[in-house]
């Protein structure tokens, strides 16, 4: 098989894994405050992703690393071109990751409230910006003959891209609400299930408009109608299943919908990796942005050995923590008091 094409597909798979997995993490983060009435509720919500969020985020690192290794030109042009959105995403992921670990370390309402804002902002910002970034990729950006992206930041905030941002945000919100309803029991399960049913409707509408716009305006392929239809079907299924409170099915379908959106995005890009909107001759393509066959061969062997292993132990993690959480399982605060009252002075 053509190795650059294989790696284009693998990178699509890595983004697919990332957005399906961290998609619900982001949703959980965005919904933590609105879904919770008490601090125990918030901790319950956070603990649904507690054991897995960090591993989920590695999908992003591997997607980035694989792009660097397999398509250096793509990596260089995209990461320097989308400079400010990526900066914001990085800052968001930093405060969010630290917040999960640190919010419970000090037993104080103000302390927790600050970290809760970090989780909230840190989940909203990437949810919106990943959509904005991918929509711009689909739409095409201005690239000069030296493969430098010359679109400015505000050019990236066009209506189509903003609709893309709304789409990913709604997809992740619904996905996250379903995940919480799947992983909790009692009142939280009920609340999250109700919210998922409500959110699923605007999600179908916004995602549907975005997909139709993208397919008709920017896709050169007829076959990309297939993922559009799969996503649409899956999202309609999500509406029905969340209404019926079939959480397992709803989750499977919302994951399928996100997966179909990723397939659609990469499908419309093909055979480019970064289409140039100003001059198609400047587009970065699978062929002109890729690494050498030697490098890709090495990477293919490594991926062939490591990927099944990673999938196995990540899958096992989800199995270990498959039980629903209840508020009763959330222990009392173990954090230290805000003021240091212990005798910590040197002996």
């Amino acid at each position: 098989m053509d190795l650059p094409l294989l790696w284009f597909l693998l990178i699509a798979v890595l983004w697919l894994g990332y957005l399906v997995l961290e998609g619900f993490d982001f949703g959980v983060g965005m919904l933590m405050r609105p879904l919770s009435r008490t601090d125990t509720d918030r901790r319950l919500v956070i603990n649904t992703i507690g054991p897995v969020w960090d591993g989920n985020e590695v999908w992003l690192l591997v997607a980035g690393g694989a792009t660097f290794a397999a398509f250096p030109e793509w990596y260089a042009t995209m990461f320097s071109g989308f400079y400010l959105p990526l900066l914001l995403i990085l800052a968001a992921l930093i405060i969010r990751g630290v917040a999960f670990e640190y919010r419970g370390k000090i037993d104080d309402d103000t302390w927790r409230a600050r970290w809760d804002w970090a989780i909230t902002i840190g989940s909203w910002v990437p949810s919106v910006l990943w959509g904005v970034a991918f929509a711009n990729l689909v739409r095409g950006v201005r690239i000069d003959a030296d493969h430098q992206m010359v679109s400015g930041f505000f050019e990236l905030l066009n209506p189509f891209a903003l609709l893309g941002g709304a789409t990913t945000t709604l997809l992740f919100l619904t996905h996250g609400a379903i995940f919480i309803s799947l992983k909790t029991d009692g009142e939280m399960r009920e609340r999250a299930g109700r919210l998922a049913a409500v959110l699923s409707v605007p999600t179908v509408v916004v995602a549907g408009v975005f997909a139709l716009w993208a397919q008709t305006a920017y896709s050169a392929h007829v076959w990309t109608w297939a993922p559009v239809l799969v996503a649409a079907g899956a999202l309609v299924g999500v509406v029905l299943m969340t209404r019926a409170r079939r959480e397992g099915w709803a989750f499977t379908l919302s994951a399928l919908a996100i997966a179909a959106v990723v397939v659609f995005i990469f499908g419309t890009l093909f055979p480019n990796v970064m289409p140039a909107s100003n001059d198609p001759a400047n587009s970065l393509t699978i062929a002109n942005a890729s690494s050498t066959d030697y490098t890709l061969t090495v990477m293919t062997w490594v991926a062939a050995f490591m990927t099944p292993l990673v999938l196995a132990y990540q899958g096992w993690t989800y199995w270990v923590f498959r039980k629903r959480l209840t508020a009763a399982a959330i222990p009392a605060h173990i954090g230290l008091p805000l003021r240091d009252e212990s005798t910590t002075s040197a002996p």
Partner: peptide, 8 residues
């Protein structure tokens, strides 16, 4: 890029 990707 390869060692970076493999690190991940």
């Amino acid at each position: 890029g390869a060692p970076l990707a493999i690190e991940g």
